[in-house]
Design a protein around this nucleic acid. Sequence first.
DNA 1: AATTCGGACAACCGCACTCGA
DNA 2: TTCGAGTGCGGTTGTCCGAAT
Length: 304
Amino acid sequence: MGRKPCCAKDASMKRGAWTPTEDKILTEFIEIHGEGKWRSLPERAGLKRCGKSCRLRWMNYLRPDIKRGSITEQEEDLITRLHKLLGNRWSLIAGRLPGRTDNEIKNYWHTKLVKKINTQSGSKLESLKNRNLPKKQNLYPPQPRRHGGVKTSAVQPKATRCAKPDVMIPSPAESEGDQKLHDQFDQSSSTSSPTTTTEIETSPINVEGNERFDDFMIDFEMDPHLLSDFLNTDWFDPSNSENYGIDYQSSSEGNACDKEHNSASSKSDETFLFLSEEKPALGSDFGYADFPIEIDHLDNWLQV
DNA sequence: AATTCGGACAACCGCACTCGA
DNA sequence: TTCGAGTGCGGTTGTCCGAAT
């Protein structure tokens, strides 16, 4: 078993900064043959580079739709909010910022925003830092890997993919198993074993009380206070759905995935994320609308 | 002018996941 | 069902370059 380690150990492979010539070769090759087959691409294109390196160079730098230039204030604000919501899921955040790459956002976060936020509210960052940090220099708690158990799945990593939704909230039918769910979550998060989402039956629920809220928080791996802050921002006004573009009655419009879901059958309940109107007794000031946020409308929801 | 320092960002690395044979 | 290729992702490292000394 096991797979050979790409070409990382191949001494003949060139590493380090890309030259303009290499960029040109890669760009022209992809323009002709398209993306994909990264492993064999270097050989076909005549590049002495690892396939992963080629992919990274293309994705993060050479792609024509890459937006160069500094991050705008609006983008920065969006990054901050999305990071509060999603954590270090850079690809998800990048997916909401057209033309920006996950690498760029990650770098921007680490160089600019961490400091900025740290100075603005050091206590919040400290609270993050002080959470379960098994590894040294880990600024943030470990994020669950993709499809790694009872965990987030409601937001698509890439708009081009139409996989299962990413946020799974346990259903009340499993109430016998609240503890079981926690156990399963603990197990999956501690072992990173590839637990599929189908192993744990899930469905949307009307969040009722602390346990539900707690599950919700677990799924997001988010500090309750941060989520509270996120939801309490002025742009988030649950009393006015127009503010975040949610239209429950006519929610059939959406992206390709959305339409695919609709065409297949009625929209899966899993595509909704319910927030609690109940004020949980967690010491948090979290408390908001009893409304489903359609995950496919996260784009609209995040519009300021 | 030379050296040091720190910020910015490109690139690397290892692991997880998907999918097809 | 198993296995491996292909790919995506997030953490980390390396390198460049300008500012400070």
